[in-house]
């Protein structure tokens, strides 16, 4: 039953009963209801001069547990492992890989709960149907790249049954083993001009382009970007959180440049630098440009 004439006119859902002393709050809430399809919204102040939120990329190495059916048997083996290295799972975020397992939503939920009761915190689930993962469950993870298997630590007095340790099960290990030999930083070499509409995306390292980057194209690199030609499109360097990355070009006509999330559009670049050979780098949170030679 409508409580004010305003509600009556606008047909709001008034199943919520407001206390009489909160008349003003009620009106504000109703304004929210009216404007937004009857969904209750809070009227918040929008910051007009907001600093853009920086979204950084970062990669972490996760331990993946791949359960096998029947689940109870697998859990017994897991307990055995946990007993041999007490407290290991406590500190680690674990990813559960259920790809290809013949289970349903309830079984998945039970799995997660059973693991939680053993203090194994699941931070994400791979290979599950999106409809199974509601807000109570860990989020879905996709596009995981395989890293080397993690070897178990040397067992204690009793010789642990090795046949239980399948390659699929990620077993606890000292962290030093996970970071293996030093790899040379990869770099991508592009020897043709980048045409309008094309995107060169290389999060692993530097990108070198022998040619021009056309207006309407973009180069996204985890490292630095070197353009031996005219940069007319967008260049985004240091996208994986690398603030040391730089952008070099023979002729600057760029539409947008960014280093580690901080960006500048063509509007804000110094007009004296357009058409010149420049290098662009980051000092703190400011983008600095300088001519080359």
């Amino acid at each position: 039953m409508p409580r004010t004439s305003f509600e009556a006119k606008n047909g709001c859902d008034t199943s919520r009963r407001h206390r009489p002393g909160h008349q003003i709050n009620q009106l504000l809430t109703i304004l929210g209801l009216h404007r937004n399809n009857r969904k209750l919204t809070k009227m918040t102040n929008v910051l007009t001069q907001a600093r853009p939120i920086r979204l950084k990329g970062r990669s972490f190495l996760a331990l993946v547990l791949t359960p096998e059916l029947p689940f109870e048997d697998w859990v017994v083996r897991l307990d055995d492992l946990a007993a041999r290295s007490a407290g290991f799972f406590l500190r680690r975020p674990i990813v559960l890989d259920v790809e290809g397992l013949a289970i349903d939503r309830t079984q998945l939920r039970e799995m997660v709960e059973m693991l939680a009761s053993r203090n194994v915190r699941i931070m994400g689930i791979e290979g599950a149907r999106p409809s199974w993962l509601d807000s109570a469950m860990p989020p879905a993870l996709t596009d995981g790249r395989p890293a080397s298997d993690i070897e178990p630590p040397a067992a204690k007095a009793d010789p642990a049954p090795p046949e239980d340790e399948t390659a699929d099960e990620a077993v606890p290990a000292p962290i030093e083993h996970a970071t293996h030999a030093v790899r040379a930083a990869p770099s991508l070499m592009v020897t043709q001009p980048v045409r309008s509409g094309q995107s060169i995306i290389f999060p692993e390292g530097d990108v070198t382009i022998v040619g021009s980057v056309a207006s309407g194209s973009e180069v996204v690199a985890g490292g630095s970007i070197h353009v031996y030609g005219t940069l007319r499109g967008r260049a985004l360097a240091g996208t994986m959180g690398n603030a040391e990355a730089r952008i070099f070009c023979r002729k600057l006509e760029a539409e947008l440049i960014a280093i580690d999330g901080f960006y500048k559009t063509a509007e804000d670049m110094e007009p004296a630098l357009r058409g010149r050979a420049v290098q662009i780098w980051l000092e703190g949170d400011k983008i600095v440009t300088g001519t080359l030679g």
Binding site: R195, S196, G197, Q198, A214, S215, G216
Partner: peptide, 12 residues
């Protein structure tokens, strides 16, 4: 010119 550049990219 910009649209032609796009079409050249598609030709490749």
């Amino acid at each position: 010119v910009r649209d032609s550049d796009r079409i050249i990219g598609l030709l490749d």
